[in-house]
């Protein structure tokens, strides 16, 4: 690890409560540029909530989010956190790409228009510049031939690849993937993983929530096991898959997946 480099994202004591339930409980995390993190853990352990908090889709109750060394997103008043102005939040989100389990493509727009939408509306780029970027990204995910169709006509794997292209079109510094293949038929998982893999090879920084262990082993710099809102272990894949088989809870979790 290059310690001279400033971390891209730093989470300190992130806590999110839903009424009584503490979904994320004082999580600390450092993500350096170019790193690939995989978060695994049982359903309901707070993985999605944590990713969403990084993108300000969930408002945290406590903690600090630092992006490129700056503390961002919240103002502290009387010891309570308040979300910063919309303009600031939108600016931060524009630098972080997010891919959802259920794609959430815009159904009323063609594939090309979906991918152009970020540059066009958020970055206020011109039609031609936006189209150029969109075509480049569609080429990257191998869907140039689908640019004129509406999402309803695509397979699940194709939809997710368009969603990745849509996020990439914003030229984000960090990509968040929340179970990108969980809604897909097994035979469609491969094409989405290949796309993410290619992205990793380009040096994109990413945090991926997945249940796919082979993928974690292959891609991750670090694997994090999360349970009940906290990180239980955080290790390299090699260590994780050898050592942690001694950890009864993780072993039980992994066994259930297989």
């Amino acid at each position: 690890m290059n310690t001279a480099k400033q971390p891209l994202l730093e989470l300190v004591g992130i806590t999110k409560r839903f009424k009584q339930l503490t979904a994320v409980n004082g999580v600390n995390l450092v993500v350096n540029p170019g790193e690939k993190l995989v978060i695994i853990g049982p359903s309901g352990s707070g993985k999605s909530t944590l990713l969403r908090a990084v993108n300000f889709l969930e408002q945290i109750d406590d903690g600090i989010i630092r992006f490129e060394g700056r503390e961002v997103g919240y103002l502290r008043k009387h010891g309570k956190l308040h979300l910063d102005r919309q303009q600031v939040i939108c600016g931060l989100r524009a630098e972080i790409g997010m891919v959802f389990q259920h794609f959430h493509l815009f159904p009323h727009m063609t594939v090309l228009a979906n991918v152009m939408e970020g540059p066009l509306t958020v970055q206020k780029k011109g039609q031609r510049a936006a189209q150029e970027i969109a075509l480049e990204m569609l080429g990257k995910v191998g869907l140039l031939d689908k640019k004129e169709v509406y999402p309803a006509t695509l397979s699940g794997g194709q939809k997710q690849r368009v969603a990745i292209a849509r996020a990439l079109a914003m030229k984000p510094k960090l990509m968040l993937f929340d179970e990108p293949t969980s809604a897909l038929d097994p035979e469609l998982v491969g094409e989405v993983f290949d796309t993410i893999h290619a992205l990793a090879d380009e040096g994109m920084t990413m945090v991926i929530v997945t249940h796919h262990m082979g993928f974690a082993r292959e891609l991750a710099d670090r694997v994090i096991f999360m349970e009940a809102g906290s990180f239980v272990v955080e290790e390299t894949p090699a260590d994780f898959f050898s050592d942690q088989l001694g950890n009864e809870r993780i072993r039980a979790f992994l066994n259930r997946l297989i």
Binding site: N55, L57, Q86, Q87, C90, G91, R93, A94, I96, G97, M98, F100, H102, H104, L105, F106, E117, G118, T121, V122, Q123, A163, R166, A167, M170
Partner: peptide, 13 residues
């Protein structure tokens, strides 16, 4: 999910 995806792109409300 549509609002979430739009926000995640950086769109205002």
């Amino acid at each position: 999910g549509q609002m979430e995806a739009a926000k995640a792109l950086g769109m205002t409300y």
